[in-house]
Nucleic acid binder design. Structure first.
Length: 366
DNA sequence: AATACGTGGCT
DNA sequence: TAGCCAAGTAT
């Protein structure tokens, strides 16, 4: 349940400021933003509107991904594909290899599909309409609202993890997420001003990223300290309340590192759907709860020797332990069906996810 | 509604 | 260290 800032007196914690109970003032947040606005590669100069393509590209990359991780990828994509038309004309394989290492690879496939759709449906220009944006591949409720607000200054209210945290504290929303998201979205929409909705959205996100942080929020620096109910309660870090998470299972497998005399390594492309879809991999047994018999899955007949140690990798929903078997093959050994020999100099052109780079590094290949 | 889907940094 | 967290979406 939620309570309005005015409805609940401070039960404990520090004494409320003189104007506690006041409605959070959007203008106060915008004034804070004007003073503390972060400079980010995809952000326009103050007072200017961002290129919708830049907003789109950055928002897709920033989904569940830190600003620091996105930085170099954003620059590389923009240099390689300066417009949505360039991106739409690129081969998917190139987009996937450029995305390799960023994670959530469905984003890269959808990014490419979205670029094609923007060209096909909208003549190469992003629609301003939130509903039309939502209809594009890879663009969900958050991203549609973010593009509408930031690129077009439309009165839209994107709600990301930062804004969830800020709003849940402001109103002390104690319904555990994800159920509590509905109330949070309603509060966020009601808060959004007609003036500068794009800056307001970015201000909320900056506030969450720099002041209203998950642990030990810097309330004393917050422009909304006074009206914040969680602050008045004395334990703002309690919010947002989240439903408990399930156990993370462990899976294991065996990877086959076949190295030819010229240094080439045997690789293949993963299936079209599921984990790491269409990405490049070192051949391996299936990854399951119990170990498979490696000899049933070796890509070719050879003397397979175990490498000491294992490769550990944690995915969102399971942890993986990979043993690595290595075989050295003579020059001229043909690649089995659906496999290919790739020299380390060509690894950068491959869509190698981090887990596979770990396997290659473990075998001191590449 | 619940689950699948990556990765790296921080505590 | 083991878990939590980051500008979520698709199914």
């Amino acid at each position: 349940m939620t309570s309005s800032p005015a409805a609940r007196p401070a039960a404990r914690g520090p004494a409320p400021a003189a104007d506690a109970g006041a409605r959070p003032n959007p203008a106060a947040l915008l004034a804070w933003y004007d003073r503390h606005r972060r400079r980010l590669p995809w952000r326009a100069e103050p007072g200017k509107r961002s290129d919708p393509y830049h907003v789109f590209l950055s928002e897709i990359m920033l989904q569940q991904t830190t600003v620091k991780a996105v930085g170099p990828y954003f620059g590389a994509f923009l240099a390689r594909w300066p417009t949505v038309s360039h991106l739409s004309a690129a081969p998917l394989e190139e987009v996937l290899s450029a995305w390799a290492g960023l994670g959530y690879y469905a984003r890269a496939r959808n990014l490419h599909a979205c670029a094609k759709a923007v060209v096909a449906r909208h003549g190469g220009r992003f629609p301003r309409d939130e509903a039309a944006l939502l209809d594009l591949p890879g663009i969900g409720p958050y991203t549609a609202a973010a593009i509408a607000a930031i690129a077009f200054d439309a009165k839209a209210s994107p709600v990301d993890g930062n804004i969830e945290r800020v709003v849940s504290r402001l109103y002390a929303v104690d319904t555990p997420l994800p159920k509590g998201k509905a109330a949070i979205k309603a509060h966020a929409a009601a808060l959004t001003p007609h003036a500068r909705p794009g800056d307001f959205a970015q201000a909320m996100m900056d506030l969450g990223a720099t002041i209203c942080t998950p642990k030990s929020p810097a309330c004393s620096l917050c422009p909304w300290m006074a009206p914040c109910v969680a602050r008045a309660q004395g334990d703002p870090a309690r919010y947002p309340v989240k439903a408990p998470k399930g156990e993370k299972p462990r899976r294991e497998g065996v990877a086959f590192l076949a190295v030819r005399a010229d240094g080439a390594v045997l690789l293949r492309t993963r299936p079209d759907k599921g984990l790491l879809a269409k990405m490049t991999e070192v051949p391996s047994t299936p990854w399951g709860g119990k170990p498979e018999r490696p000899e049933d899955h070796a890509p070719l007949a050879a003397v397979w020797r175990p490498l000491p140690g294992t490769v550990e990798h944690v995915f969102t929903h399971f942890a993986l332990t990979l043993a690595v078997l290595r075989a050295d093959l003579p020059a001229g050994t043909p690649a089995p069906a659906d496999h290919r020999w790739v020299r380390p100099q060509a690894f950068d052109a491959e869509a190698l996810p981090s887990v596979m780079r770990k396997v290659l590094a473990h075998g001191r290949v590449g």
